[in-house]
Design a protein around this nucleic acid. Sequence first.
RNA 1: GGCCCCUUGGUCAAGCGGUCAAGACACCGCCCUUUCAAGGCGGUAACGCGGGUUCGAUUCCCGCAGGGGUCACCA
Length: 487
Amino acid sequence: MAQVKVRFAPSPTGPLHIGGARSALFNWLFARHHNGTMVVRIEDTDIDRSTREYEDLILDSLRWLGLDWDEGIGVGGPNGPYRQRERLDIYHPYVEKLLASGQAYHCYCSEDELEAERQELMSRGELPRYLGKCRELSIRDKEEKCAAGRKPVVRFRVPEGRTLTVEDLVRGRVEFESDGIGDFIIVKSDGIPTYNFAVVMDDALMGITHILRGEEHLSNTPRQILIYEALNFSMPHFAHISLILGEDRSKMSKRHGATSVVQYREQGYLPEALVNFLSLLGWSPEGEEEIFPIDELVRRFSLDRVSKSPAVFNFDKLKWMNWNYIKESSPDRITELCLPHLKRAGLLSETPSADSMSWLKQVVATVQEKLEYAAQAPDVISVFFGDTVDVDSEDTDARQVLALETSPAVIRAFREKALEHKAWDSETVRSILKEIGKELGVKGKALFMTVRVAVSGQSHGPDLNALLTLVGPETVARRLEYTLKHM
RNA sequence: GGCCCCUUGGUCAAGCGGUCAAGACACCGCCCUUUCAAGGCGGUAACGCGGGUUCGAUUCCCGCAGGGGUCACCA
């Protein structure tokens, strides 16, 4: 394939959304697969809603996901600037050109007039659209309107009777009739171009070869094609990716839960997991494996395996995916990941000592294979903390175990042996357990389960030996004593 | 409502005229087990409907239905 150049062009009106992240990912995978160029540009023509904070947040999320870019915001390049609001001078001559050739014209209609027109059309059962009232205004009319203080917008004159064809790389040929499209605005009354115009200008001027974006843009494409033609720009390839849906099958939005990348980051998901998961939403690799490191995704990615049908975002599968990556990660990394959650839960001080950090790493190492995401850490880890533990009243297995005839003796014996031992490691714990079993003639569940429940208050939890080892003899003894008194 | 897109188990999905219709998540059993999990084995569960085309349709065509998107001085 000839040189490939793609772009991700978010609008900084909110954090990076899951859908946006998936678009960015597909563009990135496509670019990397073909050794092409990835550009990131900011579409900030919506002055009221765009902020620099969101821009930073989005860029940050992109970097966190491991999606880098070769040209654009932050890295520069030959086609800058890369914020649309800084490109107004670049757009201007092209607007003039369209105006001069009559392919665009000034429109002075007010909001109210347009609204009235819409209502009128709708009440007659016709489609609401702009009918071209200002198409043929005379110079005098214009001067009058200007004098009256009206600020015009620039509209694109949509030709009649044309069939606009989008050759879409994932959908095939899609046709639209130009008659269904009213003359649309390309420059707002404040002089700032609209999305449909600016996006074409930028894509053309930046030499974008492939436009991969969400399906919500498909019906905008015929308008954009018109502009490409009017300005004699060469047409890029289009590929519209199906939408990501919420559980109720409507376009994923805030009410569906966590929808922004930062939220997943905060919950303690790993970027590789999110990337892997997202890659499988609307694309499928050949073969049966599903877990791929990112460079393997790059190697395998291809547009012709991109699905046409929308996909429901499946939280369970994401969790499963993340669990896979967590259990394969180093305890150091996962400890780091859990830190903020443990601090917030009050299990750890803001500035933990080196000792408690190294202890914590061992704790994390014993439970990390159970974690689906780091925010679960406090729950899973809390049994390692505290001098006393109450038996979970919901846990009938636990109560039954403590009610065993042999249990008090087992607990007492363990407590004594724990206090006698100076050295304390997993070997010690093992031998103590063995001794008790021998001395009291108790084995299996009656032995191990009893100790577990007495020391943790629950009939399930981390590996018993590791639990006892890490909690330490003094605390174990205190917990056992407490249990003895309260059982 | 007009236009456009989509339709295989609960979800993600393979399939690209002939398959007992893959696989994954979730769910349910059993095994293993010093708990839970993991792991192993097994199970429940799908081609929206109606017409064509064809020796043969999940696959191709046409309707219908359902879902979604879009019709802004938002992107």
